[in-house]
Amino acid sequence: MDARHDRLVEELAGRLEPVRPLPRPAWRAALWLGAALLLGAALASRLAMIGLEGRGGTADIWLSACGAALTAVTAAYAAFATSVPGRSPRWALLPAPALALWVSGSGLGCLRMWFAASPPADDGHGLVSCFSFLVCVSIPLSLLMVAMLRRACPLRPNLTAALAGLAVAGAAAALLVPFHPHDASLSDILIHCVVVAGVIGLNALAGGRLLSRAAG
């Protein structure tokens, strides 16, 4: 059996090529977040930022936006950290406080609109545009994230892919705030929850399989 190992060692050493060590997870997360910001800037140049007009002073909107952005940052770092062998899987708990902030901020906004004297009427066009915005932002960010994660060796591909999905969902929700036409209503919250769950689930399913192949 030693001969079998020796043959494999010789074969691997024979086809060795120089590789550049991957940057640290913080740098890779910063790179991905920079790409997300570039995407947001591109959207701002094309779409009207009607979301901040007249409701920029509402606390729960900023709470929700900060929670979503922090979730994106922490989940992205956790995804890149868990993609490296030897890093603790407990990094997956890092986005939990930010996720709680995001959920509570969204819930507060929904409650505020529930008790408002004249809640705005939801039109189908607004919901569809909101849904399509989240999906259109999530797809390129997911593809970029999976492509970057595949360069590493995620030994827990499903966990890493789920964290990637959470980061993508948080970034998409944070980018949506300046373009959202009205305050968060119950239907908005439901749409957001469905899209976020879908993004995380699809990333965990498809991304997990892609990453498991990358891990050999």
């Binding site: 190992h5 691997l12 060590p21 490296v84 062998p85 360069r151 590493a152 060796c153 050999g216």
Partner: peptide, 11 residues
Amino acid sequence: LMTVHHARASY
């Protein structure tokens, strides 16, 4: 050993 070879850039 195979995984070490494929993932050596992640070290």
